[in-house]
């Protein structure tokens, strides 16, 4: 479990590709620089897609962790 304080968590479990990524982008747009967002996704595509987007958009992937029920929590810091 990460120790980084999470500003906002988005539960996108059950959301179909590219839903979780869309949720993250939408939320990050309205977040403050420095905010740490967590997105929960059960979409297998997210494992590659969310880190790829974070790199492309120049934000920071703080970490990711498996959660119960086959989902992943991606922790992203808004850097700009």
């Amino acid at each position: 479990m990460t120790t980084v304080p999470i500003t906002q968590e988005i539960d996108a479990r059950g959301s179909f590709c590219p839903g979780p990524l869309m949720e993250l982008i939408r939320t990050i747009k309205s977040a403050q620089v420095g905010d740490v967002l967590a997105v929960l996704s059960s979409d297998p595509g997210s494992a590659k897609d969310i880190p790829a987007w974070v790199a492309k958009a120049n934000h920071e992937l703080v970490g990711l962790e498996e959660v119960e029920g086959g989902a992943t929590r991606f922790i992203v810091r808004k850097t700009h």
């Binding site: 590709c17 590219p18 990524l21 869309m22 982008i25 897609d49 790829a52 987007w53 492309k56 958009a57």
Partner: peptide, 11 residues
């Protein structure tokens, strides 16, 4: 539609 959304996401 998924391609369009993915491409838009990737800038």
């Amino acid at each position: 539609s998924i391609l369009a959304a993915g491409a838009a996401a990737m800038g």
